[in-house]
């Protein structure tokens, strides 16, 4: 559900706020992937405390990453594979 606060932010972007949001959106993947510097992380964290729309983007992106790492089923390695690799290697000089 779209919250009313979000709409307020979206409909009335303050000019300074907008550039801050842009900066934060560029940091989004870095933060999610643990690649942001601690300075950037602080900046990001501080911003999303106040900005609902960036907070929501962050939640969404985290969820997306969680869907891949938490829900994608791993395929089971056939038992014969390790054996056949070992056998081939033993024959290789």
């Amino acid at each position: 559900m779209e919250s009313k606060i979000t709409e307020v932010y979206q409909n009335a972007p303050v000019e300074g706020k907008e550039t801050e949001c842009e900066k934060v959106s560029k940091l989004l993947d870095l933060v999610i992937d643990g690649e942001a510097t601690s300075e950037d992380q602080q900046y990001f964290k501080h911003h999303i405390e106040d900005c609902v729309s960036c907070f929501e983007s962050h939640q969404k992106q985290k969820l997306l990453k969680g869907l891949v790492c938490g829900h994608l089923k791993r395929v089971i390695v056939p038992e014969s594979l390790a054996l056949s690799i070992k056998a081939k290697i033993q024959k290789t000089l």
Partner: peptide, 29 residues
Amino acid sequence: EGESGVATTTDMRTESVQDLIGDEVASAL
């Protein structure tokens, strides 16, 4: 290892829904 562990945050709990999500993520991917 550069693990940046991200917890899964879905609300859905039943096994079958989990499977359904997994299949859907796989086909989207």
